[in-house]
Every structure is written in C-alpha cells, then in structure tokens.
Amino acid sequence: MEIKIDDLTGPEVAQLIMEHLQGMKLNSPPESIHALNLEQLRQPNITFWSAWNGKDLLGCGALKELDAKHGEIKSMRTSSAHLRTGVAKRLLQHIIDVAKERGYARLSLETGSMDAFAPARKLYTSFGFDYCEPFSDYIEDPNSVFMTKEL
C-alpha cells in the first residue's frame, strides 16, 4: 500500500469523497454532518492522503491543523471494495505519525454516534483515542461523538 499526499483532482478520489458524503447523508441528519466536500478539503490547513495499490484506490484520510499543537482527523474512508483489509489502520497510523512529526500534542476527531459508525469508534479506541467533550467549533450533538488522543 502506498499512502501519498493527494491534490484531490483525480476522478477516483472524487468518487470516494462522494461515496463518503452519501454515507454520511444516509446515517446522519443534515445538521450533524461534518464531513467535508472536495472544495472544503482543499484548504491550506488540511493535508489529504490517498492510499493506493497500483491504480486501485483503497482509501483516504486527512489531517486538519486546528492550531500549532492540535490536529483533527477528517475524511477517513475506506473504499467499499477494501473494507476490513487493514486500510483504515494503516491510514490512521500514518496520520498519527505525521501529527507527531509536526509536534502536535493532541489529535481529535468527530464521528457519528449511530450504529453505522461503531466500526470507526472501535478503530479509534483501539489506537488509544478516548471520548471527550466537543472541541474547536463543535457543539454538543446527540448524533456526534468526540474523541481525542494525547500524543
């Protein structure tokens, strides 16, 4: 698996982000969707990675800098054809490693509270993320859970 910084211009990545957003719409009410579209991911404070096996897109993930010591995981998604093959674990470890290299003291994320998001919560817990209060601009929401990890 090759994980590389992606400029979000390829059709495969556009399709995966669209799949990600559609999944959010199926499982979350509109006011509780915090997933970013392609344009929102192209911000200077966001680094976006795609994971590939040759020409096959396996998944993606992003790291948003909230401040010099705090990052947020965004847009973690495994392609439907590659679920439960270790893609998310490799991407998450990559993002954690980059956050440490950048000198972040904390890495946080928001995910859904519904059953559809249970695999994601299990993954984050297995990497040492703990549940926390809303961070950054988030507010309490019964459809969201917030997690954080001290680095």
Rank of each mutant, 00 (worst) to 15 (best):
S113A: 11
Q40T: 10
F146A: 01
P134W: 09
L41K: 08
A35N: 09
E12Y: 09
P142S: 04
E65S: 15
L66P: 10
E140D: 15
D7H: 00
H20G: 05
P44M: 02
G86C: 02
V13W: 04
K74T: 07
P134D: 09
D67L: 08
L8P: 08
P29N: 01
Q15S: 13
C60W: 00
S136Q: 06
T148R: 12
T85C: 13
E101D: 15
L63M: 07
G112D: 02
L107E: 03
D141R: 07
D56Q: 15
D130T: 12
Y131W: 04
S80E: 15
Y138I: 11
G61A: 12
V13Y: 07
E12R: 06
M24Y: 14
F127P: 05
W52I: 05
N45A: 05
L21N: 11
R106A: 02
H34L: 04
E133Q: 14
L91N: 03
G10E: 07
N27H: 06
P134V: 11
N45I: 06
I5C: 03
P30M: 03
T125L: 09
I46C: 00
I46G: 00
K89M: 14
P119V: 13
I95V: 08
G54K: 04
I46F: 04
T125S: 13
N27M: 07
R102Y: 04
P29M: 00
P29S: 06
F48N: 01
I96E: 11
S75Q: 04
G54W: 01
Q15A: 14
S32M: 01
S144C: 15
P44T: 15
A88N: 00
L92N: 08
T148W: 10
L107Y: 10
N53A: 11
L36E: 12
K122G: 00
I96R: 02
P119Y: 04
F48C: 04
K69E: 14
D97Q: 09
S50K: 02
E12L: 14
W52V: 07
M147D: 04
D97K: 13
L83K: 15
L66M: 10
W52L: 00
A51L: 01
A116H: 10
H34T: 15
G86N: 08
I139P: 13
Y138P: 13
I95H: 08
F127T: 10
D137C: 01
M1N: 06
G112H: 07
R77Y: 14
L91F: 01
M24G: 13
T125I: 07
G59D: 12
V98M: 06
W49V: 07
F146C: 06
V87P: 04
K100G: 03
M18C: 08
H20N: 14
E2Q: 11
V98C: 05
A68S: 12
A105I: 10
H94C: 03
F129S: 04
A14V: 08
R102P: 00
D115Y: 09
N37V: 03
A116G: 02
